[in-house]
Amino acid sequence: MALLEIEGLRARVEGKEILKGVDLRVEAGAVHAVMGPNGSGKSTLAHVIAGRPGYEVTDGSITFDGRDLLSLGADERARAGVFLAFQYPVEIPGVTNTTFLRHALNAQRAERGEPTLDPIEFVRMLRDKMRSLGVTEELLKRPVNVGFSGGEKKRNEILQMAVLEPRLAVLDETDSGLDIDALKVVADGVNALRSPARGMLLITHYQRVLSYVVPDHVHVFAGGVIVASGDKDLARELEEKGYADFAAADAA
């Protein structure tokens, strides 16, 4: 059985059907890219996997590691090993980045029956992970994402992923809004986390990031369904032809 199995998934947001029967399997060790035009529903897929309130699943199933993911709350999904890197990371005034990360890691360690880390142990563990991502100590002392640049926010998402070591990472347009240097740092961070035990779902509008994070599989998303699947060459084809052909195929 694959790490993540999505079957016939339909979902509504504010009464409007966005996902119209999605089928997708992500195996451990594989990186899947989901590409599609704006408004195709690919970010909705990410949020439904993470369990965001307001996204109503009307049909289908999501099985994660053999468990019915849809029966779990958002925090339970995270502790089971699902991680969503947000397209728009949330600012939380008054909670420092370090406190936030330590609470998150300790909640997950407690779930796995591992001892929790005190603040000193935690910072020691964090230092190595920060260095490779170019995250400064100063950034850790600041409130979560408050006053961060776009690049800092995205790096902070990858840092969280590195700390939490999820089984499944869903990256929702993590590449958007980044200049080429920031994109490389983020891509290096993602590549460093590729592992035979981990599945990744890379949701993106642009082919650009796929030159740095080379996917094993590429899916084209349009009109709330996957309209085409292939290997990394499919991304290149998309770059040349655009989404128009696929969108038309869906409409037909």
Binding site: A50, G51, R52, P53, G73, A74, D75, A78, R79, F83, L84, F86, P89, V90, I92, V95, T99, F100, H103, A104, A107, Q108, E111, V144, Q160, L164
Partner: peptide
Amino acid sequence: MLFYLLSRGIPRGQARRL
């Protein structure tokens, strides 16, 4: 904000307290 904390595995009660 609450969802962001939940999405990192922080239990609801603890997220609210934070």
